[in-house]
Simulated scan of single mutants.
Amino acid sequence: MTYCVAMRLEAGLVFLSDSRTNAGVDAISTARKMTVFEEPGDRVMVLLTAGNLAISQSVRQCLAEGRDEKRSLWTARDMFEAASIVGDAVRQVHKRDAHAMRDAGIEFNVSLIFGGQIRGERVRLFNVYAAGNFVEATPENCYFQIGEAKYGKPIIDRVVHPSLPLGEAAKCALISMDSTLKSNISVGLPLDLLVYEADALRVTRFANIDEKNAYFRMIRDTWGQRLRQVFGEISDPEWDAAREAEFPLARTGEADSWGQPVRATRERSRTQD
Rank of each mutant, 00 (worst) to 15 (best):
G66C: 14
A83Q: 07
M79W: 02
T49Y: 02
D78V: 13
F80G: 13
L63N: 08
M45S: 04
G66Q: 13
S56A: 08
N52W: 09
Q61Y: 02
A76V: 03
V44F: 10
L53F: 04
A83E: 10
S58I: 04
A54W: 09
L53T: 13
S56M: 06
F80W: 02
I55S: 03
V59Q: 03
E69K: 14
G51D: 05
Q61R: 02
T49M: 08
D68R: 14
L53V: 15
N52I: 01
L73P: 04
L73H: 07
A76K: 06
E69T: 11
R71P: 00
L73C: 03
R67C: 00
R71Q: 04
R77T: 14
R77G: 13
I55H: 12
S56G: 01
V44D: 08
W74K: 00
E81R: 06
D78E: 06
A83F: 10
A54F: 01
R60T: 13
I85F: 08
L48E: 10
L48I: 09
L53N: 09
F80N: 12
L47S: 08
R77L: 13
A83P: 09
G51C: 06
S58D: 00
S72V: 15
M79I: 08
G51P: 05
K70H: 09
T75G: 00
R71C: 05
A76H: 14
E65Q: 15
C62D: 02
S58G: 13
N52G: 07
E81I: 15
A82D: 03
D78P: 05
L47D: 05
A64R: 14
E65R: 15
V44H: 11
L47N: 05
V46N: 01
I85E: 03
M79Q: 11
A54C: 04
E81K: 14
G51K: 04
A64K: 15
L48K: 06
A64W: 13
F80P: 01
L47Q: 02
W74Y: 12
A83W: 06
V44A: 13
V44Y: 04
V59T: 07
M79D: 04
L48H: 06
W74R: 12
G66Y: 01
V59K: 09
